[in-house]
Amino acid sequence: MTKRSTSPFAPGQIAVHVALAAGAIFMLLPFWLMIRAALTPEAEIFSGNMLTLGTVTLDNFRRVFAEVPILRYYFNGIFVVVAIFIGQVIVCVPAAYALARLHFSGRELSLWIVLGALMIPYQVTAIPVYVILAQFGLIDTRSALILPFVANAFGVFLLRQFFLAIPGSVFEAARLDGAGAFHTLFSVVLPMARPALVTFGIFSFVSHWNDYFWPSFVLRSDAAATVPFGIVRFLDAELGSDYGPQMAAATLSVLPLLVGFLLAQRQFINGIAMSAGQVE
């Protein structure tokens, strides 16, 4: 925070900070309750002060690791999320580049189709997609979790907007420097698009890591289960109303996102601001 001429004790400032603090408590309290329950012995969860830690124990985590194949869920989750993102980059970057920079008949129409796809929630197409996956015998595999999300209208649109903001002369310079479409894309455009890719990557990672609907729709067993689906399945079957292990499992499912965010914080903010790759 830089110092402004307004006093920090001005009534307006105080009101703003009270509102922000209330919002922060509202958003952080559930996390606190989750972590507290995860670290508290089963018997003490509903006794004592909810806002302070009593006896700290890792027993709940031990139970989760012992009874739930959580490492498999982690592996599946990471595999699925990474595969989806790689697929999305392979599909969306060239598509966005074509829509932003190449001239071909049907470009306008293609753009409208992308925009249209953007407006359709994927639950609407869930059944047809399920039928297709079933025809290919992919139900209850990791492919069923990956393939439907590889072509992503949001990604195409976001990247297209970013490519449009790059001055045309940069593309022309690359052409005159002897770079074909492929080299222009990979040697010039992709490095510039890093902030946009990071932003998109975060959206993609978070939504697919947390997704519960789609795995519950196409998976039968927990062989290909991702973390949320696997945990919920297991909780239902084994842990019933044991809140300690439940909260420990929930903590474990958000942990990778938290770590990821802390590592990529700067990139993330740059990506939201989307200014890092711009030419003046």
Partner: peptide, 19 residues
């Protein structure tokens, strides 16, 4: 263009910002 072997200097420089 990419095979014509012509080089160009642009008004707005058109440099590659990340290189």
């Amino acid at each position: 263009a990419e095979r014509r072997g012509v080089a160009m200097v642009f008004q707005n420089y058109a440099l590659y910002p990340d290189k």
